[in-house]
Structure formats: structure tokens, C-alpha cells
Amino acid sequence: MSLLHRIEHPDDALNWHGDMPTEGRYTAGIAGERFFREIKEKGQFLATVCLDCDITYMPPRLYCEECFSHLDEWVEVGSWGHVHTFTVVHRDLDNEPLSEPRILAFVTLDDADGGLVHYLDEIEPEDVYLGMRVEAVFRAEDERQGSISDIEYFRPV
């Protein structure tokens, strides 16, 4: 039976190497543009609010995911909150050990629904706990690019 045909010698098995030479270019979008501009220019967070559903979207959305209406109510929200969950990262994307483990956390913000995934610093991994109060540390104004990296990390309050 030919479906049982075997490759007799390993050298007979060939493979072809290749890639998918793409680069993604992602615009911040309509809501994202305003959110990241505010971080860049003022070092603070904005959220959008759906008054009908009583949801304060963080990061802000252009529309309410619940009732699907357009959101144009923008509010400032404080850059502090608490650790909803966290992990300690020991390896990089290529599975190489990091020189220092890094703490990655999902931080929910006090004044909003939702929050941000970001690094924690100024604390040792063994001292982090769920519910810990933290605040965002922004980079200096002249270093900010309008990106999530404008937040250097979150740190304990």
C-alpha cells in the first residue's frame, strides 16, 4: 500500500526553509489616538464612559461593547489601582534566561472598569500579592512617544 510508503533514509526527507516577511503596522485607532496622546502630553489616563451601561472603559473604546452605542464621554482616571493578578517572567521570547526576572501584572484601575497589563518594579517578586495597591510610573515628558511604553512600570503605593 502506497500510503505506507516509507522514506528509507533520513537524507531523503527534505524540508524547505522560508519565512513570511511581513511587518505589521498598527494604528492606535480613533480611541487609542486620544488615549495615548493624553499619556504622551499630560502623563495621565483617559477612559470612555457608557452612561447607559455604567461602564468606564479602560483602555478607552470608541463604542460600548455591551450596548454597541458610540462613546464620546471622556473622563480622566487616576493612574493607580491594584494588582488583579501577576506572573514572574524568567525567560525571553527566545527562551533565553533573563538577567533579572520581571514581574508582569494585570492592574485594575480604581476609577475605571478594566485596566492595563504592565510590568511591576521597585518591589521583589516574593513581596507581590493580589490586591496590592500600585501606581503608574510615567517616563519623563521628553521621552514619551505616545505608546504603552510611556509607562515605565507600576510600583507599590
Binding site: T22, E23, R25, Y26, F36
Partner: peptide, 8 residues
Amino acid sequence: VLFETWQP
């Protein structure tokens, strides 16, 4: 406008 790039 703000954008990010990434090479997979």
C-alpha cells in the same frame, strides 16, 4: 498619527 510596528 500614533502607530506601532512589529515584525513577527
